[in-house]
Amino acid sequence: MLRVIGGLLSGMFFGAGLALSGMINPAKVTAFLDLAGDWDPSLAFVMLGAVATTALGYRLAFRRGRPFFDGQFSLPTRKDLDFELILGATIFGLGWGIGGYCPGPALAGLGFGARETVVFVAAMLVGMAAARGMARFIAPPANLSA
């Protein structure tokens, strides 16, 4: 139950941040990606604020030794660079550039009910399920979250 509260609290701040930052607007995201056009550097400020705050917040969190609502931190341990990482990131970047949505902003925009957003999120879940289905054939099930 406590972990549900942790997830909800984090999700609420995440949604508020995505809305305030402007990232729920695909045109703003693609304006950032359009270096050769009318470039809008705002997203660099989102990343700066998010990475700096997370880096500081993680240091505080790790200093405690364990999370409040769980026995241990669940952190990715892989260090190697593999083909899937590069291939997946490339495919993701392609879709990001086409639609102007990455997963967070698409979910944060879902509540406003635009058909574009609903279709994008549904298609995104299909793509995720397809990748997980393929991974089960190629390799044993692994924790795929970053």
Partner: peptide, 29 residues
């Protein structure tokens, strides 16, 4: 955008500090 980023950073901090998890939207979804 900077303020929104700070909120996202707080969200990531909460999920790590409380649940011990990376706030990766794609992985969680």
């Amino acid at each position: 955008s900077l303020a929104g980023g700070v909120l996202i950073g707080l969200a990531a901090t909460f999920l790590m500090g409380l649940n011990g998890r990376i706030a990766g939207v794609s992985g969680i979804a």
